[in-house]
């Protein structure tokens, strides 16, 4: 944990993580539109971030189970009771487009 050390200089990645095509696939999965300039900058930035992240590749994790939660607890279960009132009007107050209680979106074809 050398706070002052620049991780990129001593950990040159030998493989590229992300190229333009990979980035556009990620942007498609995440439904974020990107313009060309933004995309090129993001390729470089993600490349640098993943180089930092590659510190984890050096840790020996042989036989170590993944940890999803920092606290070892089991899920608490909720009694099957109706507790939620109808608050449709309140919840839809700031909605972008509503008609007859429905949220409207551009036509979705199945």
């Amino acid at each position: 944990l050398r706070a002052g050390a620049a991780p990129l200089s001593n950990a040159e990645p030998d493989t590229m993580h992300i190229d333009a095509a990979a980035l556009s696939h990620l942007a498609e999965l995440a439904r974020i539109g990107l313009d060309d300039g933004e995309a090129q900058r993001l390729v470089d930035e993600l490349e640098a971030i993943l180089a930092l992240v590659d510190r984890i590749q050096e840790v020996d994790v042989e036989g170590v189970e993944p940890l999803a939660h920092p606290i070892d607890l089991a899920q608490r279960l909720r009694p099957d009771r109706v507790t939620e009132p109808d608050l449709r009007e309140r919840y839809q107050e700031g909605a972008p487009a509503v008609e007859d209680g429905l949220f409207l979106v551009p036509r979705v074809v199945e």
């Binding site: 999965l29 993001l42 993600l46 994790v61 170590v64 993944p66 940890l67």
Partner: peptide, 27 residues
Amino acid sequence: RRILTGTYALSAGYHDAYYRRAQRVRR
């Protein structure tokens, strides 16, 4: 940036090398 980084870490092909490995390091 973070959404795209996270999408990468969870995506098919990278899930084990990034997401699962990071969870092991976390333990």
